[in-house]
């Protein structure tokens, strides 16, 4: 596969490490009342869609950017690639 890195252009998938569902960005607040329940959902419950899937890829053999790759799991078509940092900031994650 070829992943179009937003900063570095087209790169071979072999340069990347793939972690899985981009929902891992949405780490719950560890100090919340129901933290245990929320962490359970965060860590163990995943969708497994046949089709569009947002995934975390890490450019380990490159610039070390974590990327959010929107990929069709049926065709491997990649529809969108974003810097995970930008995605996280858009989601309101900060410090």
């Amino acid at each position: 596969m070829i992943i179009h890195h937003p900063l570095l252009g087209p790169r071979d998938a072999a340069e990347f490490y793939v972690l899985g569902d981009a929902a891992l960005i949405d780490r719950p607040d560890g100090q919340a009342e129901d933290a245990a329940e929320r962490f359970y959902g965060y860590l163990y419950l995943r969708d497994n869609p046949a089709g569009e899937h947002r995934e975390l890829w890490y450019h380990e053999q490159g610039d070390r950017s974590w990327l959010v790759v929107t990929r069709d799991t049926l065709t491997h078509e990649i529809k969108k690639v974003e810097l995970a940092r930008d995605v996280a900031l858009q989601k309101g994650r900060g410090q």
């Binding site: 490490y17 972690l19 891992l24 960005i25 780490r27 975390l56 890490y58 380990e60 070390r64 950017s65 974590w66 810097l83 995970a84 940092r85 996280a88 900031l89 994650r93 900060g94 410090q95």
Partner: peptide, 19 residues
């Protein structure tokens, strides 16, 4: 060493990008 570094980058970029 490699796993820890990858994990730290994940924390830095994906969890606490404002740090």
């Amino acid at each position: 060493a490699v796993n820890v570094f990858r994990h730290l980058e994940f924390c830095r970029q994906c969890l606490w990008p404002g740090m």
